[in-house]
Simulated assay, not measured.
Amino acid sequence: MKQIRSYNTLPDGYKEVLNINLRGIKIFVFLNVASVLLILPFVLAYIIYLELNPDSSPIKLELLNILMYVSIALIIIFVHELIHGIFFKLGTKEKISYKFHGWAASASVEGIYFYKNHYILTGIAPFILITPLLVASIYSFPTHSLGFYILLAMHTSGCIGDFYVIFKLLKYSPDTLIHDYGIGMTFYKK
């Protein structure tokens, strides 16, 4: 399948058309502002929920609950990157590199060029797989529903970098190749 093939070297005839470095100050600020804006609908929905359900009580801010939610949030970050890695593996036999960059975690395969559709699938997979689990947890654990709701909001806003890159990729043709170097990626087109 052409969409999931990858190359160890850039094929002839390809040239760089875009380089996204997530360490750049403009992109860093943009993604953080966008992440906050992405949380706002969750806050608004919760406020509306409280207005419609005045008898509902929020979670207790006990140390044990806080530690549990922080632990789950860290596990979600790890699983999110692991899912990226699994989907990268569908297109290459090369080793996946996992890194923490101070403010973001990443999974990448240095020196490999992936086709656009495979890269989009790899980028969106954690959101598609983790979101239903968090939504199910909201309904399955009513005494912790707000905690899981907050985790859902945090994970969704944490996907902003993935959403941004996918949005940028949409205008390119399916034969576009992407080289992901962890904290950024370069797009190549014929």
Rank of each mutant, 00 (worst) to 15 (best):
81 E>P: 12
67 L>C: 11
123 G>C: 12
27 I>Y: 02
127 F>E: 01
162 D>C: 11
88 F>I: 06
28 F>P: 10
67 L>E: 00
154 M>C: 13
22 L>Q: 15
166 I>H: 06
105 A>V: 01
174 P>N: 08
31 L>R: 14
15 K>D: 14
139 Y>S: 03
135 V>F: 15
184 G>R: 12
51 E>V: 09
121 L>I: 11
166 I>A: 04
45 A>Q: 00
28 F>G: 10
69 Y>K: 01
128 I>G: 07
99 K>A: 15
57 S>H: 10
71 S>Y: 10
27 I>W: 02
169 L>W: 03
38 L>S: 08
81 E>N: 07
112 I>Q: 13
173 S>W: 06
170 L>T: 03
181 Y>P: 03
144 H>R: 05
9 T>Y: 12
113 Y>F: 14
5 R>Y: 10
27 I>M: 09
18 L>T: 02
29 V>H: 05
187 F>P: 03
164 Y>K: 02
15 K>G: 07
79 V>D: 04
130 I>A: 10
91 G>K: 03
57 S>P: 01
149 Y>P: 09
52 L>A: 10
169 L>I: 05
122 T>Q: 12
153 A>I: 00
66 I>A: 03
117 N>I: 08
167 F>C: 03
48 I>L: 11
83 I>K: 02
141 F>D: 00
182 G>L: 13
116 K>V: 00
110 E>R: 04
12 D>V: 09
166 I>V: 14
77 I>A: 13
77 I>T: 07
22 L>R: 14
68 M>D: 02
190 K>H: 11
81 E>L: 09
84 H>I: 01
22 L>G: 15
68 M>A: 13
54 P>K: 06
155 H>G: 04
174 P>M: 01
11 P>C: 11
136 A>F: 15
54 P>L: 02
111 G>W: 05
74 L>P: 00
166 I>N: 05
133 L>S: 09
105 A>Q: 05
21 N>K: 14
121 L>E: 02
110 E>I: 10
73 A>D: 12
27 I>G: 12
174 P>T: 00
85 G>C: 09
185 M>R: 06
64 L>H: 05
50 L>Q: 05
160 I>W: 13
2 K>R: 08
190 K>L: 11
92 T>N: 03
25 I>L: 07
142 P>Y: 12
154 M>L: 15
75 I>G: 10
144 H>W: 05
91 G>S: 14
149 Y>I: 02
141 F>P: 02
178 I>H: 06
1 M>K: 08
6 S>D: 03
170 L>Q: 07
5 R>G: 01
13 G>L: 11
123 G>H: 11
120 I>D: 06
83 I>L: 06
38 L>W: 13
130 I>H: 02
98 Y>E: 14
125 A>Y: 04
104 A>Y: 11
80 H>E: 06
56 S>M: 01
109 V>L: 04
110 E>K: 09
91 G>F: 06
108 S>C: 13
35 S>K: 00
167 F>T: 05
149 Y>L: 07
130 I>C: 08
123 G>M: 09
145 S>T: 12
154 M>P: 01
55 D>M: 06
167 F>D: 01
101 H>V: 00
9 T>P: 05
131 T>P: 01
16 E>Q: 14
149 Y>V: 00
129 L>C: 04
50 L>F: 09
110 E>M: 02
